[in-house]
Design a protein around this nucleic acid. Structure first.
Lengths: 150, 150
DNA sequence: ACAATTTAGTTGTAATTGCAACAAAATTCA
DNA sequence: TGAATTTTGTTGCAATTACAACTAAATTGT
């Protein structure tokens, strides 16, 4: 069977590595851009949801958010409806960073897709969406201590 | 333009997370399985090459290899032709782990590709190979301090 | 030949990452 | 209602990760 795990991993590490190096110019540490763009696109999101969509441990997301808050890039406000929850928003400083990150990501995306026809790009995006959906339930299971049988 | 960066990142983190949790049963720490399989497939590989193919910083690979050596999973021998180089090999303990990791990876791969026809699987694998090639030179550049213009 | 550069590996330091274990609020259900 | 469970968030660890800065060996260039 065709092998996709490995190239997905290597491409992801390469792209993440590039972004992390480039965003040091914005005073962003490793991984922080991931959370910043998600908060920009989903203002008011809560930590646990953020961790799930980024697919990272919630304690990892928690500390990244704490750090970004301390650096004035985002802020948290208590949810008006649920006293457990803290809603996350970008500050104006965070808002200013967002388009820069998007531009870099768009450039990397274009580089990754060089030589692809528009139809091929759409098809790859579609395939990846399906892979993501396929792997989701296993990720949840394993993260919650369930055992996979194979 | 179709967006592929993000799903590649989330899928990679999900799969890596699953593997790391499952391989704790083998007394492997985070990331170690990545190096183990590459050494199994390329016995005698040297550190710098290993770091490149896994797409990780060489100091990261160095410490991972040190740890795996200390745990008796692999060993290093001086290269007969180049006194700088140390060739890396699996011990019998490492050899025993390899098929277990491969089985898990094959299962995750099959899960990721559920619902794909054989032709679609091959096509996705082909697309990923092309993406990997596309992003390679940028990764080298940025890792070596060069600047991308965008 | 030999100086300059590249290759290969290491250590120092500072940061992220994530499993456990916990606390508090909300929800479920008997 | 009210006990049990789930949701949401936090710290305590112990580990990886990677940029700098370095050494030593090999290669390149003149």
């Amino acid at each position: 069977m065709a092998e996709v795990l490995r190239p997905i991993g290597t491409v992801a590490r390469a792209l993440d590595s590039i972004s992390n190096i480039e965003f040091k110019a914005l005073d962003l540490n490793r991984g922080q851009y991931l959370y910043l763009v998600r908060v920009a696109e989903t203002p008011g999101i809560i930590l646990e949801r953020l961790a799930v969509i980024v697919r990272v441990d919630k304690t990892t997301a928690a500390r990244a958010i704490q750090k970004l808050e301390k650096n004035g890039i985002l802020e948290r406000r208590p949810s008006p409806t649920d006293k457990k929850q803290k809603q996350i928003f970008l500050t104006s400083k965070g808002q200013a960073l967002y388009p820069i990150i998007k531009r870099e990501n768009a450039y990397s995306n274009a580089t990754a897709l060089k030589g692809f026809t528009p139809a091929e790009r759409d098809q790859l995006a579609d395939y990846l969406k399906r892979v993501e959906a396929n792997i989701n339930s296993d990720w949840f299971k394993v993260k919650h201590g369930e055992h996979r049988n194979y």
